[in-house]
Amino acid sequence: MTSAALGKDLVGLEPLTADQIRLILDTAEPFKEVSERPIKKVPALRGKTIVNLFFENSTRTRISFEFAEKRLSADTVNVATSGSSVAKGETLVDTARNLEAMRIDMVVIRHGASGAARFLGERIRSNVINAGDGKHEHPTQGLLDMLTLRDRFGRLEGLKVAIVGDILHSRVARSNIWGLTKLGAEVAVCGPPSLLPRNVRDLGVTVLPRIEDAIAWADALNVLRLQLERMQAGFIPSLREYNRVFGVTSERLARAPRELAILHPGPMNRGVEIDSDVADGPHSVILPQVTNGVAVRMAVLYLLAGGSPDWRTEAGE
């Protein structure tokens, strides 16, 4: 099914227009209120079946999608890959085609390979939503970060956002860069040179080599999780060293010319990329990010679900 507003799938923020991104953010606003109701449920997606197909571990994103689906009254099935036919060597497309043969409507997929969501979307009729594909994109995380920033500052245009940490391996960074720059924010990246993509400036961002520079420049810091396995792979010398040079600490924030909003996609390594007193401090919007995640995912599901009734003819049936 193809939604008039967004198309069939949400694979990333790169292919979306500024208006489409704004539509998702605006649609998320009323969905915030649904989660505050005594009965946190509306019937908008009643009768829709959604499969959450997670080839990588995830707690927060999977639960957030599941809440979003349930609050829209969809029926949901979670497929974890361990213990499933995937562990027996079934390919991604075979798994999805088998699910589709059971007449599902949407697939939310997380996969370790960049491009997995698009690959799947091109091969099945169900709507596909990317919940993170390799190092490519994590569009709903980008959207919830943008919604949280818009809540905090009332605007995105002209806002200065510094993304701090492992940009090279981060799909969150990429979705943030695409989404924020499309809506007129200024984006900078800050991290060890070994963890910055070589042509990152081509994405329209500034590179700030020192965390002190990022703090002096930005309105908001989006602090990325440092994947601990990066140390074993030799990208950074040690966690203590990383914290000493790039850690977001209250001492460093105290020297900021303005009060920064602090975002983190979670899960946090307290004492590595972010100190506990910053994560729990008054400028942290880390928990509002989680709340907004449900609203943004409800908006995406809702917008993709509505479509032209003659989709079967478009699909050649």
């Binding site: 939604s3 008039a4 507003a5 539509l23 605006d26 649609t27 606003e29 009323p30 969905f31 209120e33 908008a44 997606l45 809702y302 917008l303 679900a305 509505g306 479509g307 032209s308 009734p309």
Partner: peptide
Amino acid sequence: LQAIGPRPVVSET
């Protein structure tokens, strides 16, 4: 929802 698609913006309740 199927017939007309989602309305552009849902208003406040």
